[in-house]
Structure formats: structure tokens, C-alpha cells
């Protein structure tokens, strides 16, 4: 490959490692892969070509997913059955996305990415003061598949029982999340969290933990393709993997102690910031 790794002198593996650590904490709190933060930093501030940044993004998603899921599954915040059920759609979507990826310009990718983030931010802002909406009935299919559940909320100091709604709509959105994940190298944690939180009416912490749980599998479905294409550069991916797994492990110890409202409020400005950055990049202003 004749292309250079980076055009900027600011490229430094140790800086990537430190940044990845903080992105890993945020990712594990919010059910995001961390690629959301990492990819723009690598491309905008370190001059890393977009395809390497996307490849590193996949590594960050898997590292954050495994790092946080190890704790969330043990602590029973993750809804394993919902995760497994929705993975049907995310894996098929990820394969679709990875194959469309070579056919679409990176500018268009940035704009799609940006629009998604604006939408997510708007949805999160609308529900910023919602702790948890209790549903009286569970969906028939959700009941048959055993998709409802409960968890101990450490911030509220009580057991939260929830009844899962709209499993089929959830499945449809997960396919879209999977396609976009394959396209952009991001886990689309935001979309997954929104789908579970808004459409399936699951508590935001369970949504976040289950999104984290699923993300690794979705990303693994695409990682083979990106590896073979030479998009995963070891010198970039190694500090990302180390930083993210340490950060995610740290974040998974904090999340259940925070209020759901707090999590939502952290979400909004982060999503907006990235939406603006990516829009500028897509319009070639930056």
C-alpha cells in the first residue's frame, strides 16, 4: 500500500491510548462503542486516513463491548435474551453494510453519520428528564421469547422490573443499525440504545448495557472484511484496543451508580458535538 499512515506530526500511540481510555469510559456508560469519539479524533486531529480510522473504530467497538459486557452481564444489568434476539438483525445488517461500504464516498458517509447523530441527540433531549416509564403489559411475542426482565438499580436503590414492548420494530431498527455499522465502522450504539429505550421501552441502563453486549458481535461480523481489506492498521489499533478495554472496564464500575437522567444528559451534548463535526467534514468545510 503506497498510502502514508498519517500526514500529521500529532500522531502518537501513547496519546491514542490515553484518549481511548476516556472514550472507553464514556462508551461503556452510554452503550456506545467509542468509535463515535475515536474516528473523528483520528481523522480530524491526527490526520489518519478515514479507512484506517474506521478500522480502528471496529477494534474500539469490540474492546469496549467485551470490557463493559464482562461486568454488566455478571451484575445482571444486560438483558442477554434481548441481546441475542436482536443480534439476528444486526449481524445480517452488518454484512450488508460492509459490502455497500466500498461503493459509497466517504463524504456521503460523513453526512449520513452526522444526520444520525442529530436525530439521536434530538430524541435524547426530548426524554432528558425521564427516569423510567413503567409499562403495564408486555408484548405477546416478547412474553413468548422471555424478553422482559429486571435489574437492581444502585442509584435508585431498588429492583426495577420492566416489560419489553415492540420486539419486531426493535428488530427492524437493529437491521438499520447493523447496516450503518458495517458502513461507517461505528457500532451504532446510539441507535441501539434509542431503539431499546424508546421503542422497546426498556430502562436506559439496561438498554445501554445490552447495546454494549451486542456491539461486539455486530462489529466482529464486519471486522473480517475490514481486516482483509487492510483497514486495520496494527500501530493504530493496538493502543486503541488497550485504552478502550481499560476504559470500558472502569466505566462499567461507574454506570449503575449514576441516575438514568444523568446518563441522558451526558448523551445529548456529546451526540450534538459529533454531529456538527461530521457535518463540517462531510461538507468539506474542515
Amino acid at each position: 500500500m503506497e498510502e502514508v499512515v498519517t500526514t500529521e506530526s500529532t500522531f502518537s500511540p501513547s496519546l491514542i491510548l490515553v484518549l481511548s481510555f476516556f472514550f472507553g469510559i464514556l462508551g461503556s456508560l452510554l452503550g456506545l462503542g467509542g468509535a463515535l469519539f475515536l474516528t473523528p479524533v483520528l481523522t480530524i486531529f491526527m490526520g489518519v486516513p478515514i479507512h484506517y480510522a474506521i478500522g480502528a473504530g471496529f477494534i474500539s467497538i469490540i474492546a469496549t463491548s467485551s470490557g463493559s459486557a464482562a461486568a454488566y452481564v455478571r451484575d445482571r444489568i444486560t438483558n442477554i435474551r434481548v441481546g441475542m434476539f436482536l443480534e439476528i438483525a444486526t449481524t445480517v445488517g452488518a454484512i450488508t453494510g460492509a459490502y455497500i461500504s466500498g461503493l459509497i464516498s466517504s463524504q456521503l458517509l460523513f453526512i449520513v453519520f452526522s444526520a444520525m447523530m442529530f436525530f439521536s441527540a434530538f430524541m435524547m433531549f426530548r426524554n432528558r428528564n425521564v427516569e423510567f416509564v413503567e409499562m403495564a403489559e408486555e408484548h405477546a411475542l416478547a412474553k413468548r421469547l422471555g424478553l422482559s426482565g429486571e435489574y437492581v438499580d444502585k442509584a435508585l436503590g431498588r429492583n426495577i422490573v420492566y416489560k419489553t414492548q415492540n420486539p419486531l420494530q426493535g428488530l427492524g431498527l437493529m437491521y438499520v443499525a447493523g447496516v450503518l455499522s458495517g458502513l461507517l465502522g461505528i457500532g451504532n450504539g446510539a441507535l441501539k440504545v434509542l431503539a431499546m429505550d424508546q421503542i422497546m421501552k426498556m430502562p436506559v441502563k439496561v438498554s445501554s448495557a445490552t447495546s454494549n453486549f451486542m456491539m461486539g458481535v455486530t462489529a466482529a461480523a464486519s471486522a473480517g472484511v475490514f481486516f482483509a481489506r487492510g483497514d486495520i492498521h496494527p500501530a493504530i489499533a493496538a493502543p486503541v484496543a488497550l485504552g478502550m478495554m481499560l476504559g470500558a472496564t472502569t466505566g462499567s464500575r461507574i454506570m449503575n451508580r449514576l441516575r438514568a437522567k444523568t446518563l441522558r444528559k451526558i448523551f445529548v451534548p456529546i451526540l450534538l458535538l459529533i454531529a456538527v463535526q461530521m457535518l463540517l467534514k462531510g461538507l468539506e468545510v474542515m
Partner: peptide, 30 residues
């Protein structure tokens, strides 16, 4: 998950440390 992370962490760290002492720096060939 914990086992996979530990194995990945140790091996990747070893590779990264070797990379830093290598005189060639960051090569686009991999």
C-alpha cells in the same frame, strides 16, 4: 469475555512495546 480481554491485552501490549523500540517507526506495510 474477561479471558479474551486478558489474553488480547497482554499480547497486544507486548507487540506495542516491541513496536516502540523498533527503529523503523510506523510503517504502512503490514
Amino acid at each position: 469475555l474477561r479471558f479474551g480481554l486478558t489474553a488480547c491485552g497482554i499480547i497486544t501490549l507486548a507487540g506495542l512495546l516491541l513496536l516502540n523500540v523498533a527503529p523503523s517507526g510506523i510503517s504502512p506495510q503490514f
